[in-house]
């Protein structure tokens, strides 16, 4: 299982495939203050990414891989102003 739901947190593990998007969407719908942990994530299918972008949960930990993290931040990190 690439997605682990713990209370209001979801942990992304390794490669998160297209099939997980449905469940992620359902979970986000019923979890208003959702938090995301990408620390162990190496890739996620863009279907999941779309769901996250639409729901804009807060991101607790970005992925370890810098390039991957930069991609995700461009899509999900709406708050921090670089300057």
């Amino acid at each position: 299982m690439s997605l682990e739901f713990k209370k209001n947190q979801v942990h992304f593990k390794d490669m998160v495939g297209v099939e997980d998007a449905e469940e992620l969407l359902e979970w986000l719908q019923k979890t208003p203050a959702a938090k995301v942990d990408f620390s162990a994530c190496t890739h996620l299918h863009p279907a999941n990414l779309q769901v996250l972008m639409a729901a804009s949960p807060s991101i607790m930990v970005w992925p370890a891989d810098a390039a991957f993290s930069a991609w995700l931040q461009s899509a999900l990190d709406q708050h921090e102003d670089p300057y």
């Binding site: 986000l28 719908q29 863009p46 279907a47 990414l49 779309q50 769901v51 639409a54």
Partner: peptide
């Protein structure tokens, strides 16, 4: 983005 309830996760809009 539409409301989550109306979101189609499998239609790529990226």
């Amino acid at each position: 983005w539409p409301a989550l309830a109306e979101l189609d996760a499998y239609r790529c809009v990226l």
